[in-house]
């Protein structure tokens, strides 16, 4: 039933919005992990980020794609938002308050990975200022420690923060860049790993069509 709801929600509402109202410039589609256990790490600017990343998957697989999202924002306030994010999107809630032990923090993610799901993670932790990159958190590293079976794929998104920025209800159509990179190898230390992730975001952003390039040399 839950799976059915998710498919209907994406087929009738999310996919049309993502592909017709917005429109994507996709690069590196073949790099997208086709099956779990896998983790997608992306930069975060808008609620649309999750919708776009999930829409990259066919409806037959969409129940296996699970975004990791803040429990305090999406679940604990209850009401429509909680219903939507749990029933229609199928989020894995993440406690940001710091009250949960580090090991227990990832229980939901671990069992999802055990079931062969594809997790979507935003290591910036929050949407932050539109189209600006914040510092990356190290959670992904600790989640993957001891899980050599799980691949990590970086995805750079651009333009969605302009289409629907934080705190805005009006969606304005824009084409958005979705640049999918090569898998990132597991590393010995958290800093090293996060360094690699952040470097790959920088490399991928070179391929974005919607980022204004500095054009000083041609100034007349």
């Amino acid at each position: 039933m839950k799976r059915f709801l998710k498919i209907v929600f994406f087929a009738l509402f999310i996919k049309p919005v993502v592909f017709i109202v917005l429109g994507l410039n996709i690069r590196g589609r073949d790099n997208l992990p086709k099956q779990g256990p896998a983790v997608i790490v992306a930069n975060h600017n808008s609620h649309l980020d999750t919708m776009v990343l999930m829409s990259l998957y066919p409806l037959s697989m969409i129940h296996k794609v699970r975004p990791v999202a803040a429990a305090d924002y999406f679940v604990e306030k209850g009401g429509f938002m909680a219903w939507l994010s749990q029933k229609c999107i199928g989020i894995i809630p993440m406690d940001r308050s710091g009250k949960t032990e580090r090991d227990a923090l990832f229980d939901g993610c671990q069992s999802a990975l055990d079931n062969g799901n594809v997790l979507i993670l935003f290591p910036e932790g929050s949407r932050g200022e539109p189209e600006r990159m914040s510092d990356l958190k190290k959670g992904v590293y600790f989640l993957l420690k001891g899980r050599p079976d799980t691949t990590v794929t970086p995805v750079m998104l651009h333009g969605l923060g302009r289409a629907l920025p934080k705190g805005e209800a009006l969606l304005v159509p824009f084409n958005c860049d979705v640049i999918i990179g090569n898998q990132i190898a597991h590393k010995g230390s958290a800093d090293e790993f996060i360094g690699d992730v952040s470097e790959s975001f920088t490399t991928l952003s070179e391929y974005c069509l919607t980022i204004e390039k500095t054009n000083d040399d041609t100034d007349l």
Binding site: G23, P130, E131, G159, R162, P165, E168, L170, V172, P173, F174, N175, C176, L209, T210, E212
Partner: peptide, 15 residues
């Protein structure tokens, strides 16, 4: 949509 996505616009131009 494609035009406005590639040319520079300001966040305040959304409306």
């Amino acid at each position: 949509k494609e035009f406005l996505s590639i040319v520079p616009t300001r966040m305040t131009d959304r409306r």
